[in-house]
Structures are given as structure tokens and as C-alpha cells.
């Protein structure tokens, strides 16, 4: 699934680094606890989260997350957007909650992240 597909399914606004929506998303991880994101095997994943903090972007970069979806219309601050641009991690914002966003993407064929 491409990031463009994700944005369409979630009726999401792409608010940072919109240049390349053709990147491939292999799986998804829905979490607010950053250690879980680091614990699960999440390279090439999409992170679906309700936490809007700069360290979400840093966690994403360290874990190899490809893109982040903020749920429930939570708007990240300018510091987060700037950091995401710098790290080239596209950010999507959706009005859906984490459950609905996960449900729609799963129904469209996106698997969960592997974890071991």
C-alpha cells in the first residue's frame, strides 16, 4: 500500500513532506507508548498515534517508521512539523479515531507490524 492510498482511505491531510506519496507502507503499528514502537519490529511501518510530541518523530526515525498518522484531528505543533520535514517523515492528520483508522486500513489489506 502506498502512502497515497493511506491518505485517501483515512481522508487525511498531508501536512509535512508531501513530496513523495508513492512510498510503500508495508505494515502498521497503532500505539501511544513509544517504547512499544521501539520494541516491535517496525521498519517500513506506518505509526498511528494520538500522541503529538516531538519525540514521536525521533522515535519514528530511530525505529525506521516511514510515516506517522495523527488521529482525532490532533494537530501537531510547528516544532513537530519542522522536525518531521527535517527528518523527511511525512505526517498525516485524520479526523478518525485510532480504532476506525486502524480498522479501515486493516480492511484495505494492510497487516500489523511484526513483533518478536
Amino acid at each position: 500500500m502506498t502512502l497515497k492510498d493511506v491518505a485517501e482511505i483515512l481522508e487525511a491531510d498531508v501536512i509535512a513532506d508531501a513530496d513523495d506519496l508513492n512510498i510503500t507502507i508495508k505494515n502498521a503499528c497503532s500505539a501511544d507508548m513509544m517504547s512499544a514502537v521501539l520494541y516491535y519490529h517496525t521498519p517500513d511501518s506506518l505509526l498511528i498515534t494520538g500522541l503529538t510530541q516531538p519525540h514521536v518523530i525521533r522515535t519514528a526515525e530511530i525505529a525506521g517508521i516511514k510515516s506517522i498518522v495523527f488521529v482525532l484531528d490532533k494537530k501537531p505543533g510547528d516544532d513537530i512539523i519542522a522536525l518531521a520535514r527535517q527528518k523527511k517523515i511525512p505526517i498525516l492528520c485524520t479526523r478518525f479515531c485510532m480504532y476506525t483508522a486502524s480498522g479501515k486500513l486493516y480492511a484495505a489489506g494492510l497487516p500489523g507490524c511484526l513483533f518478536k
Partner: peptide, 11 residues
């Protein structure tokens, strides 16, 4: 994981 539980419940 949460994503898959959500996916299954959503269906």
C-alpha cells in the same frame, strides 16, 4: 498487536 485487534473488531 493493537492494530490487528482493531482491524478484526472493525470487521
Amino acid at each position: 498487536p493493537a492494530f490487528e485487534v482493531a482491524g478484526k473488531l472493525y470487521q
